[in-house]
Design a binder for these strands. Structure first.
Lengths: 145, 145
DNA sequence: TATTGTTATACTCTATAACTATA
DNA sequence: TATAGTTATAGAGTATAACAATA
């Protein structure tokens, strides 16, 4: 039964796991978009706000993290700023840089957003500690490959 | 007791696993968008085309599967049809319905797209059969919770 | 009357290129 | 000259509402 993994032609088990991962990805995304929508945020706005709730970041850095062009960040921050969730601050060290930062209200929304994510939390509650440890290690290994 | 009734606060391990799942989701999405881009397809176009590569579907059904409004499907199918990857066919049973179907070329592109997905396949090659079985069971349980 | 697909409209996200103000 | 952020532009996805053809 212990057939060696064939890289060129994935075996049935690998294909099944790939499909399961696809299902998890779909569920996670739906859940995220739904949680964002409950706060009248788009997915991009929610992701950017979540980043800023940890620490203020230059526009350039936000573009790198969101994997989009810096010009797009301008608009997303504009809309969040218009709602009072984010503000632009000067960077004392470099006057070219603008630091985007979550306001108090923005941090509150980001926290509610995180707490509103049901999937990837509720399902995990059905697993034992040992199983969660096992899952953690497997996911870690996948991400470092 | 003055304690609030059973508010679940995820432990550190659960939070770590949630974050790891988020990382996997991000990696999977990047990989999918990249694979789509290599065929000059957007993510939505690639997802729709992949669905049609299995079987022709009514526009309405596509909207349900993509979780978007039917009016959006019109445009996505329009663009795929303009490139000869998809075609609209009448439904003999109901003249209101239009069946979207992948052309031969469309099926070929969908196949290449699927084969081009590196993540969720290469990382799995680094796991043993036993580990993949374990991962499969854990993911299954998460999805049925 | 209800349903299917489309059109029209408006908003957001996206990449590209040109611009400004700093460095 | 190079970099950070912005603006302008165009294409794509999205939801909403109104519409024609068909059931």
């Amino acid at each position: 039964m212990a057939t060696a993994p064939n890289i060129r032609r994935p075996d049935a088990l690998t294909l099944e796991v790939v499909e399961l991962i696809g299902d998890v990805v779909a569920r996670f995304y739906e859940d995220y978009e739904e949680a964002a929508g409950e706060h009248a945020l788009t997915g991009a706005q929610a992701r950017l706000l979540s980043m800023l709730s940890l620490e203020p970041l230059p526009m350039r850095k936000l573009a790198q993290k969101l994997k989009c062009e810096p010009s797009n960040v301008t608009g997303i921050v504009d809309r969040l700023e218009a709602r009072g969730l984010v503000e632009r601050r000067p960077d004392p060290a470099d006057r070219r840089v603008k630091l985007a930062a979550a306001t108090e209200e923005g941090s509150r929304v980001a926290r509610e957003l995180r707490d509103g994510l049901r999937f990837a939390r509720e399902p995990l509650a059905g697993l034992t500690d040992e199983e969660r440890l096992s899952l953690r290690d497997l996911l870690r290994r996948m991400l470092t490959t």
